[in-house]
Design a binder for these strands. Structure first.
Length: 119
DNA sequence: TACTTGACTGGAA
DNA sequence: GTTCCAGCCAAGT
């Protein structure tokens, strides 16, 4: 796989992230590792910084749920607008983390009945 | 070729 | 809860 293809894989994967959900750089690298054999969260971060302009980049955050440096304000606004579960200025990864192929609503086993509420 | 840098991460302090 | 540190890998100097 060429580096160009790798970039496209990353971008297409980001486009598949549903509104209100997010993926960490590491999770993305992990998904692509199956096809590319490569895995580097740092590489994904670099790609997003350089080529993330055409995709919902705000749905990609680091493993701690922190927003991308320099775009924190923008990202937070968009996330809030989509109903992404936030905790202060960070994404609640336990509820917002998404992985392709999984159910859309992995909401906690306890309260899967009521809507997502930001805390 | 060698060194630095960065939208990262997990573990230790 | 937070900050620090070492490992990571591609790209730019």
């Amino acid at each position: 796989m060429t580096p160009e293809e790798y970039v496209e894989q990353v971008l297409s994967l980001v486009e598949r992230i549903p509104p209100g959900r997010v993926m960490s750089y590491g999770a993305i690298a992990d998904q692509l590792a199956e096809r590319s054999g490569r895995e580097s969260a740092r590489l994904v971060g670099t790609i997003m910084a350089r080529h993330g302009g055409g995709v919902p980049w705000h749905r990609v955050v680091n493993s701690a749920g922190r927003l991308p440096p320099g775009h924190e304000r923008r990202a937070r606004e968009r996330l809030v607008a989509e109903g992404t579960p936030l905790r202060g200025d960070r994404v609640d990864m336990s509820r917002a983390a998404w992985t392709p192929g999984l159910s859309d609503d992995p909401a906690g086993p306890e309260d899967a009945s009521h809507p997502i509420r930001s805390r």
